[in-house]
């Protein structure tokens, strides 16, 4: 049994390889479901950005010491007024609370460290499991 806070009941699960075509295809599939529930342009922009950032983090940071053909796990569930997505990598995990604030003057010209911040800014809720290798994001239609 996984972490209860970041699990999504009744979700669809996909093993995703670090392949741009496969990533685009999956994101478009999730967004098409979201559009089908009436999600508007601004919300689609937000959800797309958050999924992109979470997948990039999983492969670039989570899998940095793993072979390139190791997939990440993507779970998603789209229902009326709510989109839930969880991304789990097979890396050692990290502690998101210790990330430096990229909006501080001293960090503004650093070219990294904005992904998690953008996910939190655009999604209604972003939760990590205790190990820090799985993130669950929720978008609730306002």
């Amino acid at each position: 049994m996984g972490d209860p806070q970041t699990c999504i009941l009744g979700s669809e699960t996909v093993e995703l390889l670090n392949d741009r075509h496969a990533i685009n295809e999956l994101i478009e599939r999730i967004l098409a479901l979201a559009v089908g529930t009436g999600l508007k342009d601004a919300a689609i922009f937000a959800v797309r950005l958050a999924i992109e950032e979470a997948i990039t983090n999983a492969f670039v940071h989570g899998h940095q010491n793993l072979p390139g053909d190791v997939p990440v796990l993507v779970e998603f569930k789209v229902s009326q007024g709510e989109i839930q997505i969880a991304i789990e990598d097979r890396g050692p995990g990290f502690t998101p609370d210790t990330l430096p604030d990229p909006t501080l003057i001293e960090n503004l010209s650093k070219p990294f460290g904005r992904g998690v911040m953008l996910m939190k800014a655009y999604m209604t809720e972003v939760l990590y499991n205790p190990q820090g290798n799985r993130v669950k994001m929720r978008y609730l239609t306002p």
């Binding site: 070219p111 990294f112 992904g115």
Partner: peptide, 16 residues
Amino acid sequence: DHLSSAALGALITINN
């Protein structure tokens, strides 16, 4: 239409 934080990072590097 869309850019990621990695694209922002590249712009920062270019600006620097």
